Computed example of a mutant assay.
Amino acid sequence: MQSFLDPNAQTVQIGDYNHVIYLAGIAVVLFLLFKFRYQIKENPGHVMLGILVFAVVQRIVSVSYYVIVGEFTVTDSLPLHICRVVCYLIIIQFFVKKKWLDQVIFYFGLFAYASFVYPVGISPALHMLGISFFMLHSLIIVYPIIRYFTHGFVPSLKGSFQSAILFAVYLTGMNILNNAIGSNYFYTEERPFMHDLSDPVYFFLNMFGIALGFVVVALIIRLTVNLFKAGKEKNEKNEEKTLV
Rank of each mutant, 00 (worst) to 15 (best):
residue 169 V to M: 09
residue 136 L to M: 14
residue 153 F to W: 12
residue 168 A to G: 14
residue 203 F to I: 12
residue 179 N to Q: 07
residue 157 L to W: 05
residue 137 H to Y: 07
residue 126 L to H: 01
residue 171 L to R: 04
residue 154 V to D: 01
residue 164 A to H: 06
residue 157 L to R: 05
residue 194 M to Y: 13
residue 134 F to T: 01
residue 186 F to S: 12
residue 173 G to S: 10
residue 193 F to K: 05
residue 199 D to I: 02
residue 118 Y to D: 14
residue 178 N to V: 06
residue 213 G to K: 02
residue 178 N to H: 00
residue 107 Y to W: 09
residue 116 F to L: 07
residue 212 L to P: 01
residue 197 L to K: 10
residue 119 P to K: 00
residue 182 G to H: 08
residue 164 A to E: 07
residue 170 Y to R: 09
residue 125 A to D: 03
residue 125 A to F: 15
residue 115 S to E: 13
residue 127 H to G: 04
residue 168 A to M: 14
residue 119 P to C: 04
residue 180 A to G: 04
residue 210 I to G: 04
residue 137 H to R: 03
residue 128 M to G: 02
residue 133 F to V: 10
residue 149 F to V: 02
residue 187 Y to T: 10
residue 128 M to A: 11
residue 113 Y to W: 15
residue 131 I to N: 03
residue 106 F to W: 07
residue 206 N to E: 13
residue 173 G to C: 11
residue 137 H to L: 08
residue 177 L to M: 14
residue 184 N to K: 11
residue 211 A to F: 12
residue 185 Y to E: 08
residue 190 E to H: 09
residue 193 F to H: 09
residue 141 I to Y: 03
residue 114 A to W: 11
residue 205 L to A: 13
residue 151 H to L: 12
residue 129 L to K: 04
residue 167 F to H: 04
residue 115 S to M: 11
residue 116 F to I: 09
residue 198 S to F: 08
residue 122 I to D: 00
residue 147 R to P: 01
residue 202 Y to V: 14
residue 154 V to S: 05
residue 195 H to G: 06
residue 193 F to N: 10
residue 148 Y to F: 12
residue 112 A to F: 10
residue 182 G to F: 13
residue 158 K to E: 14
residue 213 G to Y: 09
residue 111 F to I: 15
residue 135 M to V: 07
residue 136 L to N: 06
residue 180 A to W: 15
residue 174 M to W: 07
residue 213 G to A: 13
residue 117 V to Q: 02
residue 134 F to M: 02
residue 170 Y to M: 11
residue 181 I to K: 00
residue 187 Y to P: 03
residue 167 F to R: 02
residue 162 Q to L: 15
residue 187 Y to D: 02
